[in-house]
Amino acid sequence: MRLTICKNYDDVSRIMAERVLTLLEKKPDLVFCLPAGNSPVGMYKELVKAYKEGKADFSSLQTFDMDEYVGLGPEDPQSFIHFMHHHFLDHVNINLDNVRYPDAMAVDLDTELRQYAKEIAHKGLDIAITGIGDDGHIAFNEPGAVQYPETHKVKLDEATRLQNAPAFGNDPEAVPEYAITTGMAEHMKTKNYFVVCSGSRKAPLLQRFFSREELDPQFPVSWLRMHPNVEFIVDEEAAALIPDDIRKKALAGEEL
């Protein structure tokens, strides 16, 4: 496990984009599990910038969306596939035949999700990036007594609906009640895993993660303690409560 502490959100975004581009250069047909939400927006801007400057080629990139709201189609401005097109896909030279996302409006959603999970297992994920939800969730793997291994439908916690309300006119009731999310086994099998965080709101979550050792299904991000290749890229505000011994190792470039 590695921890990189940056000055601010812009630096988090730049360094995360650099990690993606390094992997893409090594493997042009990189399989990328794309995140939505506020955390990766800056990274997508950096990736688009690199493409426009002739420093990146996305023509062979393969993508899977990390999650989606049940009942929202690609034309819905609040859907995550719409988000991906708006912030990234429409601005680079990706082959849209290589873009895969779950059909959140499928009549037989269970069959759709089983097929999506099979495709992920067949391709294998080279890279995934996530933030941390206010309740400790990653993707939409919410706190609970169990965690599911593969892509599945999940009922969103009220805390998550409240956190995502700004995208729905600040009305938590307008946030879909259910979502689709990639599962924990899919995350754990990803070859290169990254967590990005910025701002003081995330500080207690990182403090909890780096201060304890147990795996807690009520704190889903804790499962990443078992991941063989994970890096946290965070800014100073988010890192403010991380124990000093962990910070020192991080600043010295040491594995945690």
Rank of each mutant, 00 (worst) to 15 (best):
T130P: 07
M43C: 14
L96N: 01
L47Q: 15
H227C: 15
L125V: 13
K153P: 02
S200I: 12
D134E: 12
P220Y: 14
R208C: 05
T190S: 10
N8F: 02
Y116E: 10
I233T: 13
K26R: 11
N170M: 10
D108I: 01
V99D: 01
D90K: 02
M66W: 09
T160I: 02
V154C: 03
F209S: 05
C33M: 15
R212C: 14
D65I: 12
L24F: 10
D235L: 11
I127K: 07
R100V: 11
L72R: 10
I132G: 06
E237V: 11
S39A: 15
M188H: 05
R225L: 14
L224R: 12
I246S: 05
E177G: 11
H91P: 01
K52G: 15
P149E: 06
F209W: 12
L125R: 07
Y178F: 10
L125Y: 10
A145F: 08
F232W: 14
S39M: 15
H87C: 00
K26C: 09
A145M: 06
F83V: 00
R114A: 09
A165M: 00
F83I: 00
F64G: 11
C6E: 08
F219G: 13
N93Y: 00
D97A: 05
L23A: 09
F209C: 03
V221G: 14
V12Q: 01
F32Q: 09
E255V: 08
G136A: 06
R100K: 09
S198T: 08
V195D: 00
D10E: 12
N141A: 05
M16K: 03
T182S: 12
N38D: 13
V92I: 01
K153G: 00
M184D: 02
K27G: 01
G131K: 00
D10Q: 09
F168A: 06
L205M: 07
G54W: 13
E254G: 08
K45T: 14
F58M: 13
Q62K: 15
K118T: 12
N192I: 04
D65P: 10
R212V: 08
R247P: 09
Y44D: 14
S211A: 15
P228W: 15
D65F: 13
Y101M: 00
D126W: 06
K27V: 03
N141L: 04
D76L: 03
G169A: 07
M43P: 10
P220L: 13
D135K: 03
P74G: 05
Q147N: 07
K55P: 13
P28G: 06
D245G: 08
H85G: 03
K155I: 03
R161V: 05
F209A: 04
V234C: 12
V20N: 01
F232T: 13
M1T: 09
D29G: 03
N164Y: 06
K118V: 13
A239K: 09
P172T: 04
E213H: 12
V31K: 09
L96P: 02
Y193D: 04
F88G: 00
L256F: 06
